[in-house]
Design a protein around this nucleic acid. Structure first.
Length: 349
DNA sequence: TTCGTAACGGTTGAT
DNA sequence: CTATCAACCGTTACG
C-alpha cells in the first residue's frame, strides 16, 4: 500500500507528482545555492528540475523559508461562529438593519478587521441561512465553536502567547482521525519557551531534533506530510498548528516516498523550519516589511556568507562536507553527480 | 547555456 | 459521505 510510486523526471530524479519535494532536498537546494553553486548545477546534481530549483530558491529569497506552501484546504472562514453571533445580535437588535450596515458594525466593533470582514453578500447569506429564525441560537454553530479570536487571519501566530491548542469539545479538530498517534500527544501543551525568540517560536530546535530522529531512516527524510510537518497549512488556527503540525507530521511520517537517494542521507539532520512561510500571498498581512513572516529570520543566521539579508542556512559540518562534495567534482563531472558521496541508487532509467 | 515562467496533471483539505 | 473548490506541487517546455 505504501510503497509509493514516484516518477522519474528527465534528470533521473524521483518525485511524486502533486506533492512537494522532500524537505531534505529543498534544504539541500538552498544549501548548495548558498555555497555559490549555480542553480543549473544544483538542478543537475540533485536531479530536480531547474524550474523547481528556481522556484524554491526564489521563495527562499523572498520569505526565508524553504518550506512548501500550504496545500489544500480553504481560506480561513471569515464567517466564524463569533462573527455569526454578532451578526445575529445586530439583526436582533435591529431587524431592519441592512447587510452593509452590519458589515460596518462588524468593523466598527472590532469584531472583524478589514481583511476578514465578510462581504455584504456573505452577510446576506448568513442572515438568510443561519439566522432565519432568530428565536433560537443556532445550536450547531454555537456548540462547535472553539472561538479562536477570529480577527487574525493569517499570521498572527505570534500573537498568541499560548493558544488553546484545540477545543476539547472538538470531535476531531486538528487530529487526523486515523492517526493513532495524536491522542494525548498532539495537544502538546508544551508551551514555547519564549514568545520572543524566533527560533523558539519556530520550533527550530524541536525540529532539528525531531527530524534528526527521523532522518535515521533513510526514507523518513521523505516525510510526505510536509505541509503539516511544517505546520504550514492554512488550516486550523494559526496558533495551534505550529505546535500541532510538527508533532502530527512527525507522527504521520508514513513513508510514502520511494527510497530517496542515499547520497542525501545526511540531509535530514536538520531543518530550518520556518514554520510559517506565511507567504500565502494574500498580501493580507501587515504591511510590507512589516511583520510578516518570521520576524527577523527564521534561522540563526550565521555562517552563511552568501546569505543576503541575514537568513543563513546553518550548515552542519557534515552537511557542509557533503555539500562540498558536490561542488568538488569540477563541472565537467556532471555525469556523476553523486560520485563523491554514496552510490546513487536509481541512476537513471 | 541559463533561468524565469506558464501550462499541465496532480494532491490536499476545508467547506 | 461525497463533491467541489481553490490552494499548492514539480515537471516540462518555451522564450
Amino acid at each position: 500500500i505504501e510503497q509509493t510510486y514516484g516518477e522519474v523526471n528527465q534528470l533521473g530524479g524521483v518525485f511524486v507528482n502533486g506533492r512537494p519535494l522532500p524537505n531534505a532536498i529543498r534544504l539541500r537546494i538552498v544549501e548548495l545555492a548558498q555555497l555559490g553553486i549555480r542553480p543549473c548545477d544544483i538542478s543537475r546534481q540533485l536531479r530536480v528540475s531547474h524550474g523547481c530549483v528556481s522556484k524554491i530558491l526564489a521563495r527562499y529569497n523572498e520569505t526565508g523559508s524553504i518550506l512548501p506552501g500550504a496545500i489544500g484546504g480553504s481560506k480561513p472562514r471569515v464567517t466564524t461562529p463569533n462573527v455569526v453571533k454578532h451578526i445575529r445580535d445586530y439583526k436582533q437588535g435591529d431587524p431592519g438593519i441592512f447587510a452593509w450596515e452590519i458589515r460596518d458594525r462588524l468593523l466598527a466593533d472590532g469584531v472583524c478587521d478589514k481583511y476578514n470582514v465578510p462581504s455584504v453578500s456573505s452577510i446576506s447569506r448568513i442572515l438568510r441561512n443561519k439566522i432565519g429564525n432568530l428565536s433560537q441560537p443556532n445550536p450547531y454553530e454555537a456548540t462547535k465553536q472553539p472561538p479562536p479570536q477570529p480577527a487574525l487571519p493569517y499570521n498572527h501566530i505570534y500573537q498568541y502567547p499560548y493558544p488553546n491548542p484545540m477545543s476539547p469539545t472538538g470531535t476531531k479538530m486538528g487530529n487526523h482521525p486515523g492517526v493513532p498517534v495524536s491522542a494525548g500527544h498532539v495537544s502538546i501543551p508544551r508551551s514555547w519557551p519564549s514568545a520572543h525568540s524566533v527560533s523558539n517560536i519556530l520550533g527550530i530546535r524541536t525540529f532539528m531534533e525531531q527530524t534528526g530522529a527521523l532522518s535515521g531512516t533513510e526514507g523518513s527524510a521523505y516525510s510526505p506530510k510536509m505541509e503539516d510537518w511544517a505546520g504550514v497549512n492554512r488550516t486550523g488556527f494559526p496558533a495551534t498548528q505550529a505546535v500541532n503540525g510538527i508533532d502530527k507530521a512527525v507522527m504521520e511520517a508514513d513513508i510514502k516516498y520511494p527510497q530517496p537517494t542515499p547520497s542525501l542521507s545526511t540531509v535530514g539532520s536538520f531543518l530550518p523550519a520556518c514554520a510559517y512561510p506565511s507567504s500565502n500571498q494574500h498580501g493580507v498581512y501587515g504591511g510590507p516589511g512589516g511583520g510578516y513572516l518570521t520576524p527577523g529570520h527564521p534561522w540563526p543566521a550565521q555562517g552563511s556568507p552568501l546569505a543576503h539579508h541575514g537568513p543563513g542556512v546553518t550548515v552542519h559540518g557534515g552537511d557542509l562536507a557533503t555539500a562540498m562534495a558536490f561542488k568538488h567534482p569540477s563541472r565537467e563531472d556532471e555525469k556523476q553527480p553523486f560520485g563523491g558521496g554514496s552510490p546513487s541508487p536509481n541512476q537513471l532509467f
